[in-house]
Nucleic acid binder design. Structure first.
Lengths: 190, 190, 190, 190
DNA sequence: TATGAATGAGTCTTCATTCAT
DNA sequence: GATGAATGAAGACTCATTCAT
C-alpha cells in the first residue's frame, strides 16, 4: 500500500519535472502535470495540498541528493579537494537536467518558497563555511558571504554550460575551479 | 504628439518595472501595470501589442544603457582596463534595481523572448569577443564560450550581492574581477 | 453482527453531527465525517447511500426523541399542561445542541428532504391539532396553521436563546409560553 | 457611465436573488448567477470581489429598506403603534419574497457574514430598544434580549406564513402582534 | 485617441462517489 | 465487510484582450 502511494507520488513529481522542462513556468499547471502523470487531477491533490506543494517537492527532490553529497565530504580532506568535490557534485547534479535546474533555481527564490530555500541554502552554506574554517582555506572577510557567492558562481557557470548543451564535465569543472580560486584570490593550484 | 506618446510609453514601462519588482512575476499583469501607470488598460494596449511586448520593452530598457556603455569602451584600452569597466558598468546597472534585474534575467530566457535576448547577448558577446582578441588578452579555447561564461559570472555575483542588499560597489567589483581573472587563469593583477 | 453495524451507523451519525456543528453546512462533507468517525469513506457509503441519506439520518435522530415525547403526552391532560410539556420538550431538545438544531432546521427545509420533513412535521402537527381539539383549548381559525405557527414560535425563540448561549431553561420556557398564549389570544394563566 | 455600472450591478444582484430562490443555497453558484444575469462571469467578478460579496449585497439589499422604515418611526408614537408598524413592515418586506428572505436569514447567520449581520441587527435592536424605553412600553428584564427575541418571533411567523404561501397580511400581522404582546405579558389591546 | 466595461478561456481546487484489493 | 486510492465533474476566480463609446 505504501509502495503504491509512494510510486504515485514519484510519478507525479517526475511528471511535474517534465512539464516544467517542456513548457516552462508559464505552462506549468496542475492539470498538465496530472495528465502527464497519467493520473486524475483528484489524485494529484490527494498527494499535494496545492500547486506550490508540488513545486516544493520538486525543489527538494532536486536539492536533496546534492546536499547529501556535500554533507558526506569528510572534514579532514584538504580545502582544495573539498572544493573540487563540491564543484563536481554541483556540475553533475545540474547538468543531468539543466533546464529543470535553472527553472527551479528561479522558483525557489519566490516568496512562497522562502522557508524551503533558506533551509537548503543553510545546509549548503554550513558545509561551505566549515570548509572555509579549515587551516588550509583562504582567508575571507565574511565566510557566509563568500559561501553564498561561491555557490552562485558555481551555479551560474553550470547553468551557462547547461544552456549551451553537450558540455564536457571535466573541463567545465576546471573553469569553475579557476573562477572560484580567483574569487578567493588564490593562484590556481596545479 | 510624438513626445506625448513617448512619455506615455515611458510611464507605462516604468509602471511595469515597479509592478514586477513589487509583486513578482506571478503578480505581474497588464491591469495592474495600467493602474500603476495611471492609464487605462485600453491605452496600454494602444502602445503595446500584448503583455509580452511590454515585457520586451522592459528588457530592452534594462539592457540598452549597459550595452551602450560596453560599446563605447574604446578598442585601444588594455584588456584589464576594459574588463574592469565592463564589471563596473554591470554592477552599477544591476544594483540600481537588483530585483528587477534578477526577474528580467529570468524572463528574457523564456522562449517568447529568445530573439530579443539573443540580440542583446550577441551585442555584448561581440564586445567581449573583441576584448578577447586584443594582444594583452588571455588565451581561451573558445572566445564566444568565454564571453558568455564571464558575463554569467558577473551577473551571478551581482545578483547574489543584490539579494543581500546594501553592497559596496567597489569591493563587489574587486571580488568579481578576481573570479573572472581566475576563470581566465590569470593571476590577479594588482 | 447487526449490533456491530448499528453501532457503526451511530458512530457515523454522531460524527456527522459534530462535523456539522463545528464546520457548518459549507464544511460538511462525507470525507470529513468518515475521518471524524474513525471509519473509512468506503464504510460510510456502505451504510449510507449518499450524503443526503446521512443528513436524513441526522435529521431523524434529532427529531425522533422529541416527537416521541410529544406523542406520549396523554390526551386527558389539560391543554395548558400539554402546551407546557411541549415547550419544555422542545427547549430541552434544542438547547442540548443549539447549533446542530439550527442547522438541521435549515437542512430539512431543502427540497431533497421534503418528504422526510413533511413526515416529521405531520406527526408533530397531529399532536398539536389533537391538543387544539380539546375542550379547554383556545379556538383558532385553522388548527393546522396554528399548529405550524406555534411550533415556529417555539423553535424561533429557542434558536434565539441558543445563539446567545447559557440560557435558563425555565425562564425561556416561560417567555415562550407567554408568546404562544398571546398568539392564541389567551391571557397568560398564572 | 455610473448608471451603466449601477445597472449591471443591480441586474447581477437580482439574478443572484432569483438563482437563490429557484435553486436554493446548494445550487447558488457564480456561474449560474452570471448566466441568469445575462452577463459574463468576468463581469460578475468586476463588481463583486467574490461569491460572499455577492451574497452580502443580497443581504443588504434585503435588509436596508426594512431597517430604513424602522428608523423613520417617530419617537413620539405610542409603543403599541410603533410595534404594529414594525410588524407590518417586517411582514410586507418578507412576504414580498418569502423564500429569499428565509434563505438570506440563514446565510447571514454564517460566520462569513457575522460583521454584516451584526451591523444590521444592531440597527434594528437599537430601534427596538428605544421603543422599549418609552413610558408606555412593557417592562422587561433585558431590553436587548427582548428586542432580539421579539424580532425572532416576527421573522419566524412571517417565514412560516411565507412557506404556506398566499397569506393575508393583516391577519398575519394580528397573529404576530398577539404573540409579541403575549411575550411581553401584555393582555392584547383591542 | 482614450476609456474601462465586458468577455471567456483557462487554472486551481474540492468533494461526492466508486471500485479494486 | 472494510479500505482508501482514484476519479472527474463542478465551481470559484483571474487576467489577457477587445471594442463600443
Amino acid at each position: 500500500m505504501q509502495s503504491r502511494s509512494a510510486e504515485t507520488v514519484a510519478v507525479i513529481v517526475e511528471a511535474a519535472a517534465r512539464v516544467l522542462e517542456s513548457r516552462g513556468l508559464d505552462g506549468f499547471n496542475t492539470n498538465a502535470v496530472a495528465e502527464r502523470a497519467g493520473v486524475s487531477i483528484g489524485s494529484l491533490y490527494q498527494y499535494f495540498r496545492n500547486k506550490d506543494a508540488l513545486l516544493a517537492s520538486l525543489i527538494e527532490r532536486q536539492a536533496e541528493p546534492f546536499v547529501r553529497i556535500l554533507e558526506t565530504i569528510p572534514p579532514e580532506v584538504p580545502f582544495q579537494t573539498a572544493l573540487l568535490r563540491l564543484i563536481e557534485a554541483s556540475v553533475r547534479q545540474q547538468l543531468k537536467r539543466p533546464e529543470l535546474s535553472r527553472l527551479l533555481d528561479f522558483v525557489e527564490r519566490q516568496a512562497a518558497f522562502e522557508d524551503l530555500a533558506r533551509c537548503t541554502v543553510d545546509r549548503i552554506q554550513h558545509v561551505l563555511i566549515e570548509m572555509l574554517e579549515r587551516a588550509d582555506a583562504p582567508a575571507v572577510e565574511d565566510r557566509s558571504v563568500a559561501a553564498f557567492e561561491v555557490l552562485s558562481v558555481i551555479r551560474a557557470l553550470t547553468d551557462a554550460a547547461g544552456e549551451r548543451g553537450g558540455t564536457n564535465h571535466a573541463r567545465l569543472a576546471t573553469r569553475i575551479h579557476g573562477a572560484v580560486c580567483g574569487y578567493f584570490g588564490i593562484v590556481m593550484p596545479v
